[in-house]
């Protein structure tokens, strides 16, 4: 029952997002039809272009025919997208939005997965150690450091890293996902090169992200350390090491599971600027290109895909949290936000 409710809610959200994009396309000054007409006219001259041809072209691109009533347009648009058809890209001639996304998405997912795992690994370990040494110089220092990195926008870190390590010192590549001319494949050279190119983008996310995780982990752990059952466990003779891991660590960690999933959404959003700075051919980069080229189908398609990814992550977090944390019985489900 709960699962059905959550699935229904996710579906409603997804349709709402599609509706927003539809509204945005319609709200664009001039709208896509004008834009496409102008494009076609530029290519072929003003003669020989009939209104119906423009309309069908627009439909091919954006999934709705501007000559039909609004509700028909909306219905066509939504059903097309729900069937997985995101339309044709305008600026990348002859390519469907789907194919562009399939090409770009793996790179973004690769980058984000590594960045998120590292961010949480570093943050959690640091936070736990800080909590155990609460009040020590190490704790104070790390807290200030964590708060500081937490207040650095990841793109600022990215710019600084690129400036120093690629442009000035030429240690890391400045842009791209792998060296030009390298044959993609599962060869050691290629894989090494991919990681080499991912180093700086990942570093900028991790360096600015671990502080927030550490502070949360520290707070959670300190709260756990103060719980009665920790004292009882000591009295029962449970070794300190086991208490640190099985009691404090685990219990402080579990509530952060949802944070992890939510930060996926945040980082997907952040990939826009990051990929622009590093000219990394992921979703965010294409989104920006779409916006600059006024390529409505492309930008809306990527936006919808990013939303869907976030939605799925939150849904997974919601539905699985009860399995990993016995405090939450599956029926109630901890709210993932």
């Amino acid at each position: 029952m709960y699962i059905l409710k959550r699935l229904g809610q996710a579906f409603v959200t997804f349709v709402a997002v599609i509706t927003v994009t539809f509204g945005l396309i319609r709200a664009m000054p001039g709208g896509p039809a004008d834009y496409i007409r102008a494009r076609v006219m530029r290519n072929r001259g003003s003669e020989g272009v009939s209104m119906s041809e423009i309309n069908s072209l627009t439909e091919a691109y954006t999934n709705f025919d501007p000559s039909t009533p609004v509700y028909v347009q909306y219905f066509d648009y939504v059903t097309n997208i729900l069937q997985g058809n995101l339309g044709q890209s305008v600026s990348f001639a002859g390519q469907s939005v789907n194919s562009l996304i399939i090409k770009a998405a793996p790179w973004t997912i690769f980058l984000l997965t590594i960045a998120i795992l590292l961010t949480f690994a570093v943050g959690i370990v640091l936070g736990a150690v800080m909590a155990y040494r609460e009040g020590s110089r190490f704790d104070t220092g790390s807290t200030v450091l964590s708060m500081f990195v937490n207040s650095v926008p990841y793109y600022v870190a990215a710019l600084l890293l690129v400036y120093v390590f690629s442009i000035q010192l030429s240690i890391f590549p400045q842009s791209g996902n792998y060296a030009v001319g390298l044959e993609p494949g599962l060869t050691p050279i290629f894989i090494a090169d991919v990681f080499y190119h991912a180093a700086l983008p990942v570093a900028s996310l991790v360096l600015t992200g671990f502080g927030g995780v550490a502070i949360t982990m520290r707070g959670n752990s300190i709260q756990e350390i103060g719980e009665d059952y920790i004292r009882v466990a000591h009295l029962r003779g449970v070794p300190g090491r086991r208490i640190a891991v099985r009691y404090v660590g685990r219990n402080a960690l579990l509530p952060m599971y949802t944070n992890l999933m939510i930060s996926v959404g945040f980082m997907f959003g952040g990939s826009v600027i990051l990929e622009q700075i590093f000219a990394y051919p992921g979703l965010g980069n294409y989104l920006l290109q779409g916006i600059h080229a006024r390529d409505y189908p492309l930008m809306m398609g990527i936006f919808i895909v990013i939303t869907a990814a976030v939605l799925i992550c939150i849904l997974i977090a919601d539905l699985t949290y009860g399995l990993i944390d016995p405090r939450v019985s599956a029926g109630e489900g901890k709210e993932a936000y």
Partner: peptide, 14 residues
Amino acid sequence: MVFQGAMSSFNPTM
């Protein structure tokens, strides 16, 4: 020893 607040004397995830 038995403490007051038995609920909080058990590790909630065990």
